[in-house]
Design a binder for these strands. Sequence first.
DNA 1: TTTATTTTAGAATGAACGTTCAGTATATAA
DNA 2: TTATATACTGAACGTTCATTCTAAAATAAA
Lengths: 197, 197
Amino acid sequence: MNKKQLSSQQTKQKIAEAARTLFGQKGYASTSIEDIVSATQISKGNIYYHFKNKEGLFLYLLEEWTREWAEQFQSKKERYRTVKEKLIALVEHFVEDGFHHPLTRATNEFYATELITSPNQDKIEEMMQLYLRNYEELLDEGMQSGEFKQDDAHLLSIILEGMLAGIEFSTNQLELDEALRLYRKAIHVFLYGIAVY
Amino acid sequence: MNKKQLSSQQTKQKIAEAARTLFGQKGYASTSIEDIVSATQISKGNIYYHFKNKEGLFLYLLEEWTREWAEQFQSKKERYRTVKEKLIALVEHFVEDGFHHPLTRATNEFYATELITSPNQDKIEEMMQLYLRNYEELLDEGMQSGEFKQDDAHLLSIILEGMLAGIEFSTNQLELDEALRLYRKAIHVFLYGIAVY
DNA sequence: TTTATTTTAGAATGAACGTTCAGTATATAA
DNA sequence: TTATATACTGAACGTTCATTCTAAAATAAA
């Protein structure tokens, strides 16, 4: 990569960073390309040089985020022994580190609005599935090991994912420690609910 | 109410009905006032005669919905004996009758986008609280009666509400019976999670 | 019948915004 | 040095859309 390509990559990342922050602060629809221009001093044309359009820019951020999430998920998983511990650690990690992730709220909005029109439905759907598959795997593991009752792991993964995502919704006004308390309680209720006694 | 007032009320309801359907089908932002004009043959000016603006129209629908919800919640509550039964019945009822309520998705979108800018935050917040209070009351009742472990009912109400709302999200593609199965499983996991053994 | 009030119509307004495009600068390669 | 592909600029475009405004129609009141 020569000097030019390098600085080009840097501007692309600068755009991405500012966009992530702005989408997080103002939501998807309310963030204009002009806002990103103001925040970065990078011209509109340049933004469109690096990204197909607004939707493409957002999708780029989503994919970046999903990739990171998956990596962290894996490394967390390996650090704990029982599935219970793993799940608790995962929840704590993603509350601490990601609960106010810039994109969580904007993603809801994006998903709610763009799902109907976007030709990128598949891409979004795929990302959703990634989260579910990871949870499902863990739950399966817990059933194999005898930690959890035999049950429909797929269904439970939707419930878990739904629960975590849904709580996030009520979480906007909460401080980190309050949020942490809420999520801990939630995962414990869930674990009690599926545990073998 | 004379003839004129009556027909005026009728047009107002006609607008509300069409808006509810359209917001449900296309989401909040993607539904234009023009769409409502096309669907109803009622003029723009007339719509603005009956409603302050688009946001006001949507809020009107939300309030209508919340009112109905609260009524049905009450009447359901009285028909069952234990809190467990009440909660299960409630979930089933609102899945069957409301899970594809026209406004569920649009409300998510509206909430996600308008929360930041809208001066109606309070109104929305208030509606949210109504749901929570109702759940909290029930949970409290269950703790009093010894059905549930002593715990923080407020926290649990947020978790329950979050879980139900969050699952809805994954539910768009599901058939009613699949959705019902999912929600039943969810409420059972939750109940097991908080029950006294 | 006349006057006042409420209700309806729809063209006009104006701002917001995503996207395009013609052109310019810059670094790399020849 | 020159040619070329890459990176970048920002004004202009076109469209969408909520909202406003003027006027007309319909009904109620006097």
